[in-house]
Simulated assay, not measured.
Amino acid sequence: MPEWLVEPGIGEDRAILVDHGTIVAARVCWREPWRAGAVSVAQLDHRYPGSKRGAVHLPDGTTATIDALPADVTHGATLMVRITRAALAEQGRFKLAQCRAAGVAAPAPAPAPAPAPSLAETLAQTDSPVRILGGLDRSFDEAGWDDLIEQAQTGAIDFPGGRLTISPTPAMTLIDIDGPPPLLPLALASVPAIARTLARLDIAGSVGIDFPGQDTRADRQAIDLALDAALSATGWHGERTGMNGFGFVQLITRLERASLVARLAFHPARAAAHALLRQAERVAEPGTLMLVAHPAVLAAIAPPLEAELARRTGRLVRKDPRNTLALHAGFAQATTS
């Protein structure tokens, strides 16, 4: 039976759904306070005329967009909200967190303020069991975590006969399919890889798939049927369009958080910092921990994260910034000097 493995790291919680030694799904949580599921008091900043939408201020000053506003809630009013999507970074812009008015439907009482559920708590609501791993457990490595992260970084996923290229954009996540003809076998061969990739890289929201163009309606329908079957097999839930004459298909499903691809594309230094902290926690040799990395990566290790590393390992921590290192080429080692 597939099992969720959860690794609570420093600044980051990671989870993989493993089936027969293979990662079939993955999630990452950076413990942002305003994640899906958080409930909080908020103050209405404004609402759009004739609409149920507007913006609110959360207790720490964060602004979030809001939907499902009751008609009698006006500027400055205090109300309870539930976060439905975390804030998202995109190329050239930043999307605010989203929320909805909570507890406004009588006779249900308004919910009490509550933090977002942890990654483990969220996964406990799925059909698969959840196991929390210790800091020195190597199950992620054995299942292929590094290969998964490489796919998320490059956006390149090979399949028999071709390659997928994943590109996050402000409008949607795009999946392009490349490979030699004949084009119908190429498109059909890409379908299982697409369905697996959506789960493995935690891709949701609006997804555009650019299949190789097909000459006949029958070929397009064959690809549609294959895509339906592959998505259903992975437990995907959402809506999709039929393939148009240019080979384009759009998938739409609920978006609650950034995908692995988006996190690595728009927060590369922070992602590299979390990976470096994970590596540092596992250094076995005695001595002071030396973190050697690009300055941007070391700058992304906030003092509380450095303190957590020192607490977990019982060691002093030093930093060695090196401009010549790529962001993900940092390393940790023990030193006696």
Score class of each variant (00 low, 15 high):
residue 1 M to I: 11
residue 9 G to I: 01
residue 11 G to V: 07
residue 15 A to G: 09
residue 19 D to E: 15
residue 20 H to N: 10
residue 21 G to R: 05
residue 21 G to Y: 05
residue 24 V to S: 03
residue 27 R to D: 08
residue 28 V to G: 03
residue 34 W to C: 01
residue 36 A to W: 06
residue 37 G to P: 10
residue 38 A to F: 01
residue 40 S to V: 09
residue 44 L to W: 08
residue 45 D to W: 00
residue 53 R to T: 05
residue 57 H to S: 12
residue 58 L to Q: 01
residue 62 T to V: 12
residue 64 A to I: 05
residue 70 P to R: 11
residue 81 V to W: 00
residue 83 I to L: 15
residue 86 A to V: 10
residue 86 A to F: 00
residue 87 A to G: 11
residue 91 Q to F: 04
residue 96 L to I: 03
residue 101 A to F: 00
residue 102 A to K: 06
residue 104 V to P: 03
residue 106 A to Y: 02
residue 107 P to Q: 10
residue 114 A to F: 01
residue 116 A to C: 02
residue 127 D to G: 11
residue 129 P to N: 09
residue 131 R to K: 15
residue 131 R to E: 13
residue 135 G to F: 06
residue 135 G to I: 08
residue 140 F to N: 04
residue 141 D to I: 12
residue 142 E to Y: 15
residue 143 A to C: 03
residue 154 T to G: 15
residue 157 I to E: 01
residue 163 R to G: 00
residue 165 T to N: 04
residue 170 P to A: 12
residue 171 A to N: 13
residue 172 M to D: 09
residue 172 M to V: 08
residue 174 L to K: 08
residue 175 I to P: 11
residue 176 D to H: 11
residue 180 P to K: 13
residue 185 P to N: 02
residue 187 A to N: 13
residue 199 A to V: 01
residue 204 A to C: 12
residue 213 G to E: 12
residue 219 D to Q: 12
residue 220 R to K: 04
residue 222 A to K: 07
residue 226 A to L: 14
residue 226 A to V: 04
residue 236 W to F: 15
residue 240 R to Y: 01
residue 240 R to K: 13
residue 241 T to M: 08
residue 242 G to A: 15
residue 243 M to H: 04
residue 251 L to A: 03
residue 257 R to P: 01
residue 261 V to E: 05
residue 262 A to Y: 06
residue 267 H to P: 08
residue 271 A to P: 14
residue 283 V to W: 00
residue 288 T to H: 00
residue 293 A to Y: 04
residue 300 A to Q: 04
residue 303 P to G: 02
residue 307 A to H: 10
residue 318 R to E: 14
residue 320 D to L: 06
residue 321 P to Q: 07
residue 321 P to D: 02
residue 322 R to E: 06
residue 324 T to S: 14
residue 326 A to D: 12
